[in-house]
């Protein structure tokens, strides 16, 4: 272990769904991962291998059944609901596989939603959201609700939302699986840009186009990590 703490670290992490019940699922088995600051880490593996579960745990929206999770060397496994919400608010940006945008809410408001409880005024919220959406090529779509946007556009709205709190770690679950190849390339460019800005990126994918940019690739199979490097 080096003196510089990792951005995110999992040690001996397990996730067992329905533990002790008939439908018990071992989604993650003894996972050890260390994510360096400013790196792009890729998690790959077939469907059902545990990618979503693992990025969920690293994004603090899921709790491990066993094992420890560290953020910048500090163990956060047992953190309270309030403390974990604080980490998500200040440190992390999450992009979900199915986008999880609020239906009926204009794109800019979706992007700015995380700023509401931070007391940011509507004018300022809109300004920041429009700026982000424009940078992602969605200037003409800021007032459209998700229902009126294509998959690729929704994906970029979701990315803008993940960036609105200026996080230093961005976690994306299969960012290119629900969009066409052309848009996927655009997303790749966005990710490269973020990496240049020094953000730590963690993404799950089975799209090998993304591997080229990766500093680290982890392969999952049946909840077991097959090896890093």
């Amino acid at each position: 272990m080096t003196g510089v703490p990792y951005m995110m670290e999992c040690r001996g992490v397990w996730k067992i769904y329905n533990e002790g019940r008939p439908h018990e699922v071992r989604a993650l088995v003894d996972i050890n991962i260390a994510v360096r600051k400013g790196s792009l880490t890729v998690l790959t593996g077939p469907s059902g291998s545990g990618k979503t579960t693992l990025v969920g745990i690293m994004g603090t929206i899921e709790r491990p059944s066993r094992g420890r999770v560290y953020l910048e060397g500090r163990e956060i496994t047992g953190f309270s609901d309030v403390a974990l919400s604080m980490i998500r608010r200040e440190r992390t940006g999450l992009v979900f596989q199915n986008f999880n945008l609020l239906p009926g809410v204009p794109a800019w408001e979706n992007v700015a939603y995380p700023l509401i409880p931070q007391g940011v005024r509507e004018g300022e919220r809109r300004r920041r959201a429009v700026e982000l959406l424009s940078a992602l090529g969605l200037a003409a779509r800021v007032d459209h609700p998700p229902e009126e946007l294509s998959g690729g556009e929704q994906q970029r709205v979701a990315i803008a939302r993940a960036l609105v709190n200026d996080p230093d770690m961005i976690i994306l679950d299969e960012p290119t699986s629900n969009i066409d190849a052309g848009t996927a390339l655009q997303v790749l460019e966005i990710l490269k840009g973020l990496k240049r800005e020094g953000k730590t990126l963690i993404l799950s994918t089975h799209d090998s186009d993304l591997f080229g940019e990766a500093d680290e690739i982890y392969r999952l199979k049946g909840g077991v990590l097959e090896g890093g490097g």
Partner: peptide
């Protein structure tokens, strides 16, 4: 169920339960 999902989204994007 929609409400449940929305609450999940808010919490995932940094809202506090109290908020």
């Amino acid at each position: 169920s929609e409400r449940r999902r929305e609450v999940g989204i808010l919490k995932a994007t940094g809202w506090q339960t109290q908020e």
